[in-house]
């Protein structure tokens, strides 16, 4: 699918994929303006999240393949490699203070998932 960009406020919303492209309670990676972004369909909570696809621990492009879940009330994703977990809300690594990932706003309209970058 072509990436369409809509400028609005300071954020640029990029159409990333269709809702059904991302498995329920899982993630997938989209290429947005040359950048790899992991998109998560947290259907159990009815929430969408987007973060860097790269895990800062060993610079692996894999976070979209990680398992998502919660710690307390916080939604999180676990890197498949060494199980560093990151808050989906603010990107802070939850089991190693030294790491953090970027998070991006997501909106869904007419079955299309948009990421604000």
């Amino acid at each position: 699918m072509e990436a369409i960009s809509i400028h609005q406020d300071k954020q640029t919303w990029h159409a990333a994929c269709r809702v059904e492209d991302i498995p329920a309670d899982g993630g997938a990676c989209a290429l947005i303006g040359g950048r790899q972004i992991a998109i998560f369909n947290f259907s159990r909570r009815g929430e969408w999240y987007a973060t860097d696809n790269e895990c800062p621990h060993r610079q692996q492009m894999v976070l979209s393949r990680g398992m998502i879940g919660s710690q307390g009330d916080d939604p999180k994703v676990a890197c498949p490699f060494h199980k560093k977990t990151f808050s989906l809300k603010n990107g802070q690594c939850l089991n190693d203070d030294g790491y953090r990932i970027n998070t991006f706003p997501v909106k869904v309209e007419n079955g299309i998932v948009y990421i604000g970058v």
């Binding site: 329920a24 692996q60 492009m61 894999v62 990680g66 398992m67 998502i68």
Partner: peptide, 20 residues
């Protein structure tokens, strides 16, 4: 819906290696 509860290896039916 079981794909996303599998470890990455099971989810892609292959072993993930260094570099992805």
């Amino acid at each position: 819906g079981r794909a996303t509860i599998q470890d990455s290896n099971d989810r892609y039916l292959a072993n993930i290696q260094k570099g992805g």
